[in-house]
Nucleic acid binder design. Structure first.
Lengths: 204, 204
DNA sequence: ACATGGTTTAACCAAGTGGTTAACAAATGT
DNA sequence: ACATTTGTTAACCACTTGGTTAAACCATGT
């Protein structure tokens, strides 16, 4: 039973750390609070993860490894751009609704410390635009979509899907929507965003 | 000369506080660092602003009062939606290039403490969607633009314009662009984003 | 039974935190 | 000239922070 106990504690710590780090950020998080949430002694955090920085990095990598496959779906899949936009928009929103703190966490911490991405860039599965670039250029050339660079299109897709979660408090205030109404707005975006993008780029 | 001296110090503090708070956030900022940056004694921060929280609020309100008029340009102006989209996209990007930390700062701190907006909501000039809503409904009814709710359209415009600044490190990594190339990408968006939006909503 | 190893705990620590204070400097009113 | 008010400083304070440690705990192999 020893082994089970270890892994259990280690996982409990990571679980608690996810909650605290993702809602309060590296600077706002407190080791004691993580320990309390995990229901264990603070010394255990250091026993398993050595330092706050390393515990944070474990949480960040974990979060990033959840997000990366989602983005690869639009960058590396073989179906048409139109199809990918439709699928991605729906899938991504569904995904983030289950992990609401995720995009904001990653964006905030990367702005705090951009060099941190370098550690991650050579891990395989790191999203890369190259394949998508060729596909966009091809569909533009074939006249399927209007002229646009892959970077701009990718940025637009990311923006329309991620931003509503990141800027939720701000947009809620401007649009006078309560929490539930905003969630409905988000839900509607599963199809509306795809239509918006396709209208914008498709040649008629 | 007394008055001049006072205002000078008070302003130097606010200036330094802007830099530190906007780049490190409330939790990451240190009063001593702000004092050092301003080149004055730490006690002066409390003399003029009482506490870290109040100094932070002064910085936040200042930042917000810079941003709000920009957003009101698209919500309250009387010109057509197409025209406003064009103007806003260009103006807003120009504006943020001059204040690069601003959107991220506001979004970050609002996520940390959403209730904070309530303090701000009744100040006049607080962006409100109501007028824009009527305009969108009218243009939809007149067949100028495709059916879309004002909230979704507003959210899309915000997303496409703000997100590239907020997610800069992330997008730079995925698209393998260096800082200068990314700035060019942003520069191009001054017109590309407007075209993208108008293509998406305009009835042909 | 007992030695062994990893696991867990309470108590502790040095460094840093926001904030205060008492004395000093400088400008102003009279 | 002098008292008063305002601005400024260095030293200080209570408290929190991440991190350590030494002793206790406990499952296992022999």
């Amino acid at each position: 039973m020893r082994k089970l106990k270890d892994e259990n504690t280690e996982e409990q710590i990571l679980d608690a750390a996810k909650h605290i780090f993702q809602s309060k950020g590296m600077d706002g998080a407190r080791m004691q609070e993580i320990a309390d949430k995990a229901g264990i002694n603070k010394a255990m955090l250091h026993y398993y993860y050595r330092s706050k920085q390393l515990l944070f990095e474990a949480v960040f990598k974990n979060a990033f490894s959840l997000l990366a496959p989602q983005l690869n779906a639009i960058l590396n899949d073989d179906s048409s751009i139109e199809e990918k936009v439709k699928n991605f928009t729906s899938d991504y929103i569904t995904f983030i609704v289950k992990h609401p703190y995720l995009p904001n966490f990653i964006i905030q911490e990367l702005n705090r410390n951009p060099e941190f991405l370098l550690k991650m860039k050579d891990t395989n599965g790191f999203p890369n635009i190259e394949k998508f670039k060729k596909q966009v250029d091809r569909e533009v050339e074939q006249g399927i979509i209007k002229p646009i660079s892959a970077e701009q299109l990718f940025l637009n897709i990311m923006a329309l899907n991620i931003f509503p979660f990141v800027a939720k408090p701000l947009i809620r205030a401007f649009t006078n929507t309560d929490n539930e109404a905003y969630n409905q707005l988000i839900e509607a975006r599963k199809t509306e965003v795809a239509d918006f993008i396709i209208n914008a780029i498709k040649n008629s």
